[in-house]
């Protein structure tokens, strides 16, 4: 229980430090009295910004995120399993082998479909 109280104190102190630094720098920093609009313009290597900044990006990023959610949930099952493996013995090992085979098949399917391939057309 004391550990979690410590964690809470630590979290509060770190939060205080982060917010405090932001506030401190807000209080002491230089503030430009008349800001040139060019200065706050979005940085695009000196050119005038073109179009909206929230551009469309490749669908591959979404696919990676979806595959990650699948595999990460499956990986979460492995933690309790490995901790009790020595008590459960052979049966648990074989069951997890079946589970990992299914996991591998999913990975192989994504691999074959080209979802893990980045240089698509």
């Amino acid at each position: 229980m004391v550990s979690y109280i410590n964690l809470l104190i630590f979290f509060c102190l770190v939060l205080l430090f982060a917010v405090g630094t932001l506030v401190l720098s807000k209080l002491v920093r230089y503030i430009d009295p008349n800001v040139n609009p060019v200065k706050v313009a979005t940085y695009e290597c000196g050119e005038d910004p073109v179009g909206d900044a929230r551009i469309r990006f490749p669908v591959s990023f979404y696919l990676i995120a979806l595959i990650f959610v699948l595999f990460d949930v499956e990986a979460a099952f492995l933690f309790p399993w490995i901790l009790s493996l020595s008590k459960l013995g052979l049966l648990a090992f074989i069951e997890m082998l079946i589970f990992l085979t299914i996991l591998f098949l999913g990975w192989f399917y994504a691999f074959k479909k080209g979802d893990l391939k980045w240089e698509r057309q």
């Binding site: 720098s25 920093r29 230089y30 706050v40």
Partner: peptide, 12 residues
């Protein structure tokens, strides 16, 4: 230097 630097919040 970081603390005293001017802070720029880009438009948008």
């Amino acid at each position: 230097k970081f603390i005293f630097k001017e802070d720029i919040i880009p438009e948008g």
